[in-house]
Design a protein around this nucleic acid. Structure first.
Lengths: 329, 329
DNA sequence: CTCTCTTCGGAAAACGATTTCCATAACTAA
DNA sequence: TTAGTTATGGAAATCGTTTTCCGAAGAGAG
């Protein structure tokens, strides 16, 4: 394997000089710099990131800490899009990424988790799927041992940033639009997982909307699953005029229930997943750019590495209207 | 950070001795071994895998090389299940896992890919989603620089194993069952991606079945998408008695087309994803245990590291019959 | 009781980078 | 010309392991 040593020899300089060129350190003359770069080209040298990580605490080895919801269809898509967006951007930044799932650390203490991360020379973490009940992760963030970026969880401190869309506004808008396009003021809101940050934000938005538009709001919690939404719609769908769901998957569940009950209610969803193709009727939803969110998270991690303090980064969202035929054909 | 040095001091032995205990080397007396283990416990020591990877070529840092099919619903589920199964098992083996997607290496040569993997100190690779057209990956495997395990691609050499289910038998069985349960001998087979290893195996099985059961077989290729399957069913569904699809997602596409054409045809799928919940009629399918497949791949990689030669590992599959109500409610 | 053969444990050299610190060389100013 | 900076490049320590090799102690044989 070609190492920095070979490059040094080829360029006729010291190892340290090569390293300086590689890392854009100032104290290298442009001649030497060029000579080194030429040698790098010729030898096709790629620095060993493992060695770099070992010797430097700065080098970015980052962990993608994911609360997986395996096999819930739409959720899988969101997971994959988050992961893929992050990996892509991480490659640009030459970050090393390790993907970890929450369930791998069930029954582990913070200290054990920290030790594990340290054993991997992890310096930065991107977290998503965090709910208020995930104590260990919260402790991890508070300790500020690692640079963290939380997606959709408003946790910030000197070494923690948050990337999110404006869930309150988005939920408000999509529900308002749907209600305005239809008649009636009795709204069934099928919320997501209890104690989810996103869930609470959206409920807050719905309550505000209820106040603003004089609605009768019926709120029920479910998992982000088709099943829960379907069951809740069976129970409460009939006595409402409109069904607002916390995800597209839930919207589909609701539609199926309505269909089976043989009644029509306008339904709106959230997320803008490709699952939208499964809807059986027109639907409003909020499209999130999941890849962009996680890519931004990587960028933000880079900022934190550079010494920037944690901050809240708000990403844009988009209201869309879906028709069955729009997507599939 | 507590290092092997600290453990050595605590136990009153040399660093090398600690390492030997950690890696189960023979030449350590049980007394010393215990003393070291006690020190490890007390200090809560976790070895730094980055350092280990740097110094040893044996230590398993493995890459999960994935041909992602982002946002095709069912495909996402399969991806996630593969990834999650592998990560879990890798953790047991204390392997370090890096997830990489094919598309990240578009336009890259084998040498560039190799260099990248080496720069990450990767020694083993698990590959899935490989089609016959992925030249670079095939070259990578042939070079035998890394230990490889290919899922669903029959590539074996001294350092490459293959994990798969018996696609031929599975396809044969599920189609046979569906045909026997119904009437007619005109079968529309909606195959997967052209040049996919799995695709070809299954087509072969269908041809054999056609011979055995005296069927008139109409084969058409599509992407593993609902859309393609739907379109193909519109075109060719009417003149056949039975529709056999290469995936559950495709089966759903076919069912939708049939519904819209207002004709009934038995449809069978493949994979046994949770997407099965979306079917609108009874359906036979083949359930694959994706987590088990990728977990087995990790085990097999460990075997290869231990010096075992590459081999073909056949995993079991299961025929299942799905009803709409089975899954969702 | 000595000689050889094991068994065990330690010293030290990797692995491939980063980074600190020091020695020049070169330049500036007086 | 000389003292004082500053720019530049190198030597060496370091990160935390693994692994080779060697010496010492203990065991067994004669």
């Amino acid at each position: 394997m070609v190492s920095i040593k070979d490059v040094a020899k080829q360029a006729g300089v010291a190892i340290s000089t090569v390293s300086k060129v590689l890392n854009n350190y100032p104290n290298v003359s442009s001649q030497t710099r060029e000579r080194v770069q030429k040698a790098v080209e010729e030898l096709n040298f790629v620095p060993n990131s493992v060695a770099a990580a070992l010797s430097s605490k700065k080098v970015g080895r980052i962990a993608l800490l994911v609360n997986l919801n395996v096999s819930a269809q739409a959720i899988d898509e969101i997971d994959m899009r988050y992961i893929s967006g992050a990996l892509q951007k991480a490659m640009e930044y030459k970050f090393d990424v390790i993907t970890l799932f929450f369930f791998m650390f069930k029954d582990k203490t913070v200290d054990e988790l920290i030790r594990y991360l340290q054993s991997q020379s992890i310096t930065g973490i991107i977290i998503y799927g965090l709910s208020k009940e995930d104590l260990v992760i919260h402790q991890l963030i508070e300790k500020q041992i690692f640079k963290c970026v939380a997606i959709d969880a408003p946790l910030m401190n000197d070494s923690t940033s948050c990337i999110t869309i404006d869930h309150k506004t988005a939920q408000y808008e999509v529900a308002k639009k749907t209600i305005e396009e239809n008649t009636g003021n009795k709204v069934l809101y099928i919320a997501g997982k209890k104690n989810g940050y996103v869930t609470d934000d959206r409920i807050e938005a719905m309550k505000k909307l209820a106040g603003d538009m004089d609605l009768i709001l019926d709120i029920h919690y479910g998992e982000f699953s088709e099943k829960d939404s379907r069951n809740l719609t069976f129970k409460y769908g009939k006595k409402s005029n409109i069904v607002v769901c916390a995800s597209d998957l839930m919207a589909i569940g609701a539609m199926k229930a309505l269909q089976e009950m043989d009644i029509f209610r306008p339904v709106c969803g959230f997320d803008g997943t490709t699952l939208m193709g499964y809807v059986g009727q027109q639907m409003n939803t909020v499209r999130q750019d999941f890849e962009a969110l996680s890519a931004k998270a990587v960028e933000e991690l880079a900022n934190l590495f550079d010494g920037q303090k944690g901050q809240l980064v708000m990403m844009p969202h988009e209201l869309v209207q879906i028709n069955y035929t729009d997507i599939i054909v």
